[in-house]
Design a protein around this nucleic acid. Sequence first.
DNA 1: CAGTGGATGCTCT
DNA 2: GAGCATCCACTGT
Length: 191
Amino acid sequence: MPKSRLLTRAFFDRSVHAVAPDLIGAALLVDGVGGTIVEVEAYDHEDPAAHGFGGRTSRNAAMFGPPGHAYVYLIYGLYWCLNFVCEGEGVASAVLIRALAPTAGSALMQARRGMHEPRLLCAGPGRLCQALGVTRAHDGLALDAPPFRLQARSGKIQIAVGRRIGITKAADKPWRYGVAGSPFLSRPFRA
DNA sequence: CAGTGGATGCTCT
DNA sequence: GAGCATCCACTGT
């Protein structure tokens, strides 16, 4: 087994704009199922597009909790989205996990998704939560303990930057990060 | 390929 | 009651 550094709270207790690109290439497993993170977006506490911007509510409570924990919410009444809480407790900044390159548990992911094309198993925030079985039950859970397992990126990689997807407020901010050439992105990065 | 619209339900105003 | 950090099926080139 190659040695691997697990991501703990200290990793997330930094600016969300530093954490987000550092998550590209990291391994994310939930109950042993998952893959390599290839796309994320940063949402900071002064960001009108961020759920925590308007203050604490019952939905976004986990965003105001300690760093290194999950914030999971339901979007469009249909799909779950997984975030990693960053910066200090009470700051309400988080990284949205948008796409993985599947590496573990593909059969289970295919069954959960009801489809078989590897490229689309985890290509999008809703899709990857469906594939990994992430639901409201994971909201507020620590990321350095089961069912989560997060391993730091080992090698050096080239990280692409672009505008965030699917939002109307602060849509011009270049806070989307990813692996430019990956076939597992929710959408390609513009050249 | 690109573009459009429906599904579906929770949260906040 | 409006809006939503989405996805899929379907249309038309």
